[in-house]
Amino acid sequence: MLDFYLIKDDQITPDSPTKLEFIGQLGSKTFKNLKTKGIIENHYEYNSDFRWKSEQIKQICQNNTAHKQQNDTDVKQLFKIIEIIDNTNSGIIAFGD
């Protein structure tokens, strides 16, 4: 699973998620589907750690609106995670298993 944690935009990227707030996870199939649908950019890898700052998350939301896929089950799983960071000036860091 790909585990997502809340992280402030100005916080230094940690080596591990210790002391970060867990906000959700995605399976490999869902992650691949989101890449295929253009919601997640192709350069992100499921088994790699990565970080999205708040501006990148806004862009992901705009891409979703442009593709009109709000009712897609894969998109709903991602947005369940993303909606947690609303109005927090925070981003998301992902740690792959």
Rank of each mutant, 00 (worst) to 15 (best):
L20E: 13
T18D: 12
K35N: 04
I92K: 04
D15G: 14
Q11P: 02
D72S: 14
I93F: 05
F50I: 03
Q11F: 11
D49V: 00
E45P: 01
T88D: 03
Q77G: 08
E55C: 00
T88A: 03
N87R: 08
D10L: 11
T36N: 08
I81V: 09
K32R: 10
I23M: 14
C61G: 06
H67R: 14
M1R: 05
L26A: 15
G24E: 09
E41P: 00
D9Q: 10
K53T: 12
P17N: 11
L34I: 07
D74C: 10
Q56C: 05
Q25W: 07
N87E: 09
E55F: 07
I81D: 10
Q77T: 11
N42Y: 08
I81T: 09
H43S: 11
I7W: 04
E21L: 14
S28Q: 15
D10C: 06
K37G: 00
F31P: 08
F50L: 04
Q77F: 09
I39V: 15
T73I: 14
Q25T: 09
T73V: 12
P17K: 10
V75T: 11
L20Y: 05
D10G: 07
H43P: 03
I92F: 01
Q70C: 02
K19G: 02
G91A: 08
D86W: 05
L2S: 12
F79G: 08
N63S: 08
I84E: 14
S48W: 09
A94M: 03
Q56G: 07
S28H: 13
Q59R: 10
N33F: 02
K80G: 08
I23K: 05
I7E: 02
Q56R: 05
I92A: 07
K76L: 13
Q77A: 15
D74L: 02
A66Q: 08
F4P: 00
K19L: 14
D10H: 14
L6F: 15
T36H: 04
G91L: 13
Q77W: 03
I39L: 08
G24F: 03
K29T: 12
D49A: 06
N71Q: 14
H67Y: 15
I7Y: 04
L78K: 09
N89F: 12
I92L: 11
F31M: 04
G24V: 08
E45K: 05
K68W: 06
D97L: 07
F22Y: 12
T65A: 13
K32I: 11
I60L: 06
D72M: 09
K8W: 02
Q77R: 13
G24T: 07
D72T: 11
Q25M: 11
T65P: 01
Y46R: 00
D72K: 02
G91M: 08
N42V: 03
F31K: 06
L34R: 02
G96R: 00
Q25N: 14
I39E: 05
R51K: 03
N33I: 04
S16W: 15
Q69P: 00
E45L: 04
N63T: 02
I60P: 04
E55W: 02
I93W: 05
I84T: 15
Y44L: 12
F4S: 02
Y46V: 00
